[in-house]
Amino acid sequence: MEAVILLQWTFDTFLGLGLLWLAWRALACPDLFRAIVLFVAFGLLLAMAWVSLDAPDVALAEAAIGAGLTGALLLAALARLRSSETNVEVAGQPEKKGLKVRNPQWLPVVVLLPVAAGLGYVVLSLPPDAVGLSAQVAANLETGGVSNPVTAVLLNFRGYDTLLEMVVLLLALLGVWSLGGAALRREDAPGLVLDTLSRLLAPVLILVAGYLLWVGAHAPGGAFQAGSVLGAAGVLLLLAGWRLHAGLAALPLRLALVAGSGIFLAMAVFTLLMEGQLLKYPPAQAGILILVLETAATVSIGVTLAALFLGGRPPNKQDHR
């Protein structure tokens, strides 16, 4: 048995060191494309660290959102950055000529050292064997409506956290949309391989999203994991050249985007009026209410992530008038 523990310990040590090294490389790398690849590798290793910590829910979310979709978003941003650089050759020029903008390298260190010291102090001053809240969660799981404690915490006991996360996602998309329209559709055909792959995978991904959503009630999974898989299907279709029909880009798209936050907010107001407490569901109906909330959240998260990848407001019918 000791050999197994030693092996586990060695693996965890390499994992931790690898994470630190990848994080440093991703930050220090001057080539942005390489930095993004390192960031994706960092996300995958981080997901393994979560698995090692017995947190498969977080690991799923980290792998799907942190490594997968964030990587795709960063690559899309990089592509836009490069195309705008070739159009406007101003960026970075004045620095080299007259004004010498000095960027002191020690300044971040001065700021970050106290932060690191403070964080270290906080971590070290934690009680060595904290009880945590898992006992409380386990005691109240009966009234939670679902048997997966993570889903019970996210959607019931601390539902307002998830509500705010949904709003944050929506605000991020509003920020991107306010910057301009979507990138123009690529003229060249996507090619047979990408076309076939997207046609084969999109239905499978939608099925997987539904499965993750459903299984979240009693096993690792849930709205964010399902939503990011749905978003991945959208990204794949967008890469293959698919674009939302202009008739659907106005109201239907917006409805899908706000469905999660909207239904969540409506539920919050309703429970506040009926039960006198924000997002306190009646125990008998908690399961079905959570499923409704999670379904709406999944659709919104998926559509929002795909829309973020598109990187701008898609053109709709009103624009053509």
């Binding site: 090619g191 391989v193 990408l194 076939t196 792959l197 084969l200 995978l201 499978v204």
Partner: peptide, 16 residues
């Protein structure tokens, strides 16, 4: 099976 499909396709795309 999914990784076979994705791996083969992505390798083809990268090589292309």
């Amino acid at each position: 099976l999914l990784i076979l499909l994705a791996g083969a396709s992505v390798a083809h795309l990268v090589a292309g």
